[in-house]
Amino acid sequence: MAISPPPKRIWWNEPVHGVEIGWIAVTVLWGLFMFFFMIAWHFIGQQNLSTETYRVQPHAYQARVEAFAERFKVGEENGTPVVRPPAGEDVYILARLWEWWPILELKRGQSYRIHLSSVDWQHGFSLQPTNINISVHPGYEHVITLTPTETGQFGIICNEFCGIGHHRMTGRIRVTE
């Protein structure tokens, strides 16, 4: 039994149940498939999270985001600037206690280099209802080339716990034709 030592001193040479051999074959093949599918998706898929990352001082990052917002600002919403960068431009999003800053207006089908970083604690970039979720760290600048495929108003919520205002931390991305 499983709670007593194997009765045969040499159990390694015991025959293996046929069902077990068949199932092992299935699991090995399925494991290999899942493994290589992850690699394959880097070539055939359109959704692969970039790993382009730079070390950055939080205050230096904040200065760049502010310069970016200043340059392409088109309005304001509840005190947050609304920014409309041209297609292909580097776009900056700043995470801090407790907001995603600024509000972006993007064009459908255009690609943007989105820079993501935090100036204080860790935050979780969660674009809703699309459901794209990316971790945001202070001191690390993550660059993602993003292409919106649908129009409308999207919310950014925070899904990494960041203190008592965590559930108030929101932002916005609008996508137009």
Binding site: T80, G124, S126, I157, N159, H167, R168, T170, R172
Partner: peptide, 17 residues
């Protein structure tokens, strides 16, 4: 459906946006 973990207010009552 996108609900965040460790999140007190799924309705975002006091959120600026």
């Amino acid at each position: 459906l996108g609900v965040a973990r460790r999140h007190w207010d799924t309705t975002f009552t006091d959120a600026p946006h």
